[in-house]
Structure formats: structure tokens, C-alpha cells
């Protein structure tokens, strides 16, 4: 049997194509400004991409489950604000405080999942509503950008354990986590439920359990993103999360995860997040105003999806081998 390049690229989680796009963009940057990808530069790129990577990680799991999570915008803001409220805490109390921040994210996710599953409501509307609620709470906690992050956290955000920048380390940890998670029964159950709820039920998958896991992970990841944002800027923002909702969905979609559920994975999403991030560098190098980055991101998103749907239509027409 002959395996063409396109079928190879279409295999696994569908991250072949975005990876090619990422390399093309990176290649362009390297051409325009040689030495753009030294270790120091990579660390900077990583640091600026990690917030999006975290949010998009949770979004990937939810989209694989066949849902969508808009509330990550609120959760990110709330986590960043909480992170910046207690600069006075002594070092030892910081871990429980971090656990609390992530716990809040988890609870928000569980609330989403329970409302969606028990009332059989549409994820889009439910998470739109909880986004508003959680962002509102963030605004109540801290009405505007500000606060102070505990010095230890701020230092941590720029630390280099084992000589590796913390953002790079976090990215590696995240990929390790994914390498583990994608092979667990829960990941397969989430895929199954996202692919076809009825078949999943017949295969003894708990539809509510997979929802709780997916939205719970999404909440924790969004909280982690908010925490990381706070350590990078030294302050919290009750509205910053809104900037990440749409890019997170874009990263997921560019990464080859289908909004219809069941397919996709984190490798593609991380690739997608870096594609979105590097467009900024391209725009900078072309000496365009930074707003071209937004336009480019939108255009890439549409082009990737249109290409994908054309390829899919063609492969459907040729039919599965019979």
C-alpha cells in the first residue's frame, strides 16, 4: 500500500499541516533576521506564548469532548486577580494559595460541566453566561488592572531551574503531561463522547464524567494561565482573559482539532499557538504596525479551515477504500 505525503500529514492528531505552516513561518523569520531562534530568543517566544498555550490546552480537551468553553476568559482574569491580591503572604503559604487558585478554576469547570450535562444545555451559551459571571466576580475582586504579586512568584516567573527558562520548562512539562494523558482511558473516553455520544454511551462511557473531566481541566488550565500572566506582569487584570478566548479557539482549530469533536490533540494546538505568536514577529520584521498581526491571525485561521474542509471534501469524494 502506498502512503502519500498527504495521508501521512493527515495521520495521528492532524498536526502535520500546522507544523509545516509553523516551519514555513519560522523559516521566513530566520531568513529576514538570521539568529532569531537562539536559546534566548526561544525563551522569549515561549514566555509570550505560554499564556495562550495554557488556555488553548484546556480548550483543546473541551473541543475534543464536542463542546466549547468561553468561560476560560473569565477564569483567566479571576486567577490573575487572585494571584495579585496577597503580596504579603509568607513563602510557605503560597503553595496552598496556588492550589486554591487552581481549585477555583477547577470548580468553575465542574460547574460548567454540571449545568451542561444535567440541564442538557448548549455549551456555547452556558459558558458564555459563566464567562460573564466569572469576569464580573474578577471585576468585583479588583475593579482594574493592578495589585501586586508575591515577590517569590514574580521571581519564579523569571527563574531558570537547571538553567532552563521557566516558560520552556513549563512547555516541556505540559507536553509530557499530554504524552501521558492522551494514552489514558479518560482521553479515549473524552474522544469517544466527542465523536458520538450515543456510541460512547453504548461503550459504557459516562457522558457527564467526561464533561466534568474536560471542563475541569479547561478551568484548571485557564487558572494556570492567569497565574502565569500575573507572575509575568507582576499584577492582575480583571479583563485580560477576554483577549485570549478567541485566540485559544483559533489555536485549537489551526492545530487541526475539529470543532465537531472527537479528533485532535495538544501537539497541534501548541503548534497553532506558536503560529499565532510568530505572526507578530513577522509583522514586526516587515515593519508593519502591530495591528497587521491581528489581521494575519484571522486570515490564517480562515485559510487553514478552508484548506482543511476542501481536503476533507476531496477525500470524502474519493471515498474510503472498499
Amino acid at each position: 500500500m502506498k502512503r502519500s505525503l498527504s495521508s501521512l500529514l493527515g495521520r495521528t492528531d492532524g498536526w502535520g499541516m500546522p507544523l509545516v505552516v509553523l516551519f514555513i513561518i519560522a523559516g521566513l523569520i530566520e531568513l529576514m533576521r538570521p539568529g532569531s531562534f537562539g536559546l534566548e530568543q526561544l525563551a522569549l517566544i515561549c514566555a509570550s506564548a505560554m499564556i495562550l498555550v495554557f488556555v488553548a490546552t484546556g480548550e483543546t480537551i473541551v473541543v475534543m469532548r464536542g463542546g466549547i468553553d468561553l468561560s476560560v476568559g473569565g477564569t483567566l482574569s479571576l486567577a490573575s486577580v487572585i494571584s495579585a491580591t496577597r503580596a504579603d503572604l509568607p513563602g510557605l503559604d503560597l503553595l496552598p494559595w496556588l492550589a486554591l487558585i487552581l481549585g477555583v478554576g477547577f470548580l468553575i469547570g465542574v460547574a460548567n460541566a454540571l449545568i451542561i450535562s444535567l440541564l442538557k444545555l448548549q455549551p456555547f451559551l452556558v459558558t458564555l453566561a459563566t464567562w460573564s459571571i466569572v469576569e464580573g466576580i474578577a471585576l468585583i475582586v479588583q475593579p482594574s488592572e493592578g495589585g501586586t504579586v508575591p515577590p517569590v512568584w514574580f521571581a519564579w516567573g523569571y527563574s531558570r531551574p537547571f538553567g532552563i527558562p521557566i516558560s520552556v520548562l513549563l512547555l516541556m512539562l505540559l507536553m509530557l503531561w499530554w504524552a501521558w494523558f492522551r494514552r489514558t482511558r479518560m482521553a479515549n473516553s473524552i474522544r469517544a463522547a466527542g465523536s458520538n455520544e450515543r456510541s460512547a454511551y453504548l461503550n459504557r462511557v459516562s457522558l457527564m464524567g467526561t464533561n466534568i473531566a474536560a471542563y475541569g481541566i479547561s478551568g484548571v488550565m485557564a487558572a494556570l494561565a492567569g497565574f502565569f500572566y500575573a507572575t509575568q506582569t507582576g499584577a492582575g487584570s480583571p479583563v485580560v482573559g477576554a483577549q485570549y478566548v478567541l485566540p485559544a479557539i483559533a489555536a485549537v482549530v489551526i492545530g487541526g482539532t475539529s470543532l465537531a469533536g472527537g479528533r485532535g490533540g495538544l501537539t497541534g494546538t501548541i503548534t497553532g499557538a506558536f503560529i499565532l505568536n510568530l505572526t507578530g514577529t513577522v509583522v514586526f520584521l516587515l515593519k508593519l504596525t502591530s495591528y497587521w498581526q491581528i489581521v494575519a491571525q484571522g486570515a490564517i485561521l480562515v485559510l487553514v479551515v478552508i484548506t482543511g474542509s476542501i481536503v476533507e471534501a476531496r477525500s470524502e469524494r474519493s471515498g474510503a477504500d472498499r
Binding site: L246, I249, V253, Y291, Q293, I294, V302, V305, A313
Partner: peptide, 19 residues
Amino acid sequence: LRVPPIVMTLSMNVMLMGL
């Protein structure tokens, strides 16, 4: 072109914003 509505209108929104 079978682009999901969320993706298409979202992209249109950010492109208009940037422009």
C-alpha cells in the same frame, strides 16, 4: 466552503478590528 460559523465570523471580526 463549510467553514464552521464560529470560526468564520470570529476571524472576520478580528480582521475587521485589525484593519
